[in-house]
């Protein structure tokens, strides 16, 4: 079965979505991430979507769910790399991703995660 790889980097998990995901693949990622957070006690999740040409309501919902469930499991989620055209489209679609932290790129996203975890 297809899977999006999850990389472990110390206390953080790193996910780079590089394929056009069908819905089941997105749901599998959601399950895999929660399982990883639980198994490794991860404190942060960084999701890089710079390779995604579109984010529709289904993927948007998955991102929101991952952010919410990681918070419940004591981990922070930061979404990075959203293309400008994707951002414009998401807002017009009506999805503003409330409660989801974002950063422009991976570097800034990692910095944000470290600050958040240090502040705890």
């Amino acid at each position: 079965m297809d899977r999006i790889p999850i990389l472990r980097m110390g206390e953080f998990l790193l996910v780079t979505i590089q394929v056009d995901m069908h819905d089941q693949l997105a749901l599998t990622l959601q399950d895999d991430l929660s399982e990883h957070i639980s198994r490794y006690g991860s404190k942060g999740v960084l999701i890089d979507i710079s390779a995604l040409d579109i984010v529709d309501s289904f993927i948007g919902r998955m991102i929101g769910t991952i952010s919410g469930l990681s918070k419940i499991m004591d981990a922070e989620t930061v979404l990075v790399g959203m293309q400008p055209a994707v951002a414009i489209t998401l807002v017009e679609l009506g999805l503003t991703l409330p409660g989801v932290s974002t950063a422009l790129n991976v570097e800034r996203g990692m910095r944000l995660l470290r600050e958040r975890v240090l502040a705890q």
Partner: peptide, 17 residues
């Protein structure tokens, strides 16, 4: 143009689903 491509593809994704 790119933004309109993105909007149309996203709309198509919603309707196809």
């Amino acid at each position: 143009r790119l933004v309109d491509q993105t909007k149309l593809i996203t709309a198509a994704s919603e309707l196809a689903r």
